[in-house]
Design a protein around this nucleic acid. Sequence first.
DNA 1: ATTTCTATGTTTGTTAACGTACAGACATAT
DNA 2: ATATGTCTGTACGTTAACAAACATAGAAAT
Lengths: 234, 234
Amino acid sequence: MLNNITALGSNRLLNLLTDNCRQNLLTHCELVSINLDEVLCNLGDVIKYVYFPVEGIVSWEKKITDSPYWVVTLIGNEGMICISLLLGINERSCRAVVQKSGFALRIPATIFTQQVEQKPALSMILNRYANVMYNQALQIAACNLFHVIENRLARLLLMFQQRSQSDEINITQDKLAKMLGVRRVGVTKAAGSLQRKNLISYIRGSVIIHDIAGLKKASCGCYEADNATYNNMM
Amino acid sequence: MLNNITALGSNRLLNLLTDNCRQNLLTHCELVSINLDEVLCNLGDVIKYVYFPVEGIVSWEKKITDSPYWVVTLIGNEGMICISLLLGINERSCRAVVQKSGFALRIPATIFTQQVEQKPALSMILNRYANVMYNQALQIAACNLFHVIENRLARLLLMFQQRSQSDEINITQDKLAKMLGVRRVGVTKAAGSLQRKNLISYIRGSVIIHDIAGLKKASCGCYEADNATYNNMM
DNA sequence: ATTTCTATGTTTGTTAACGTACAGACATAT
DNA sequence: ATATGTCTGTACGTTAACAAACATAGAAAT
């Protein structure tokens, strides 16, 4: 079964391991499909599995006390879900929800913990990824403060595009608004503006990106900054 | 020299270690004074030392590309500086600046790395602290998006108060504004409002907190949320 | 004592985003 | 075919924060 992975694509974190090390880890992995709106781990759950997405997109969301809002970032095959287990924290303050169906490699938490202890190469790579996540969180903080909705929407669309390798994003404006922490009306306005600039077009429930380079210009520098952080660190 | 530490106060992270483990670590520590505006580690520096503040306050700041702004959080004796070394990252994307003079325990990076490898108890505690920092970053992201300046200022003042154990904060409105990522005028207005509510008073270069409970009510929930995260995790 | 610098206070107009409401368009189910 | 639900478009008044400019006041220096 695991031989199919190459056909599907693969996980960029695991790709950084030596062939030997990766093969050994993969024997403990199970390839599972992840489906839209599936909750991979919920608030307060004890972590049962960690996931390395191979295809598809997962949102990583932190609940904010006394508020209906969640801080959101997206994770695809460049990352993993439940990295905090690396730090020995096995109860979650965040949840993970599938935003685009696909596949992921799943490892039971106990085995993952053992593997990390036994394989310095693995823990080194995941440590670096944890630091990427931290810097991304600070980037979101700045982005939320300084950048207008249109820029932030452009950034979010690019994040979808990058993680799905597809120019069509199946999502409603309402969901985009929740991810950005703004009103749906705000997204309608921003999306309309991006469309008028011929960067995207959209219909009910799906956005099509026409001009990635243009969209990058229309986004804030945070998209590129996140990528730079990832590339430097990994 | 190190016996003086108890007289000065101590670091809450190190306090979580067993006496044996802490004593052993302290033999590698040097107690140094940290002075206002001193830069403990700068952008792009290779990390030479990690610091465990005992007294005083240090700001932890991430530069945002193409912008004069920095995302800022405060670290006192509840935390440490350059936690990323724990993750094996020895070059910094953040800087640390002393905001209130005091003292810190300092350990050379190489020795710190060794100690972390040798002492599971130490690495466990610091791993948990790293997770606290991550959650704090996400909290800042939400706070920046949803909360008005007055709430955010109240939160920042409480963070100073908590970390200095003093109701007098020696800082200008201009510096506060930079930390919040807003204009100085915005701080003047918010501070004036807090003063009119008899929660604080201030003169040139210093703020005095009169009513901590009231200030907590005037702040957003983020102050308490951060504390809750810390207490749960540690 | 006067000057200079720094910190705080206030004003004016502008803007991005808010809350709320409603209308039209499309999709699905019965 | 009709009804119901979901998604998108638009409008109106409100607000927090912005940018820029200027005024006042305390501290430090000469």
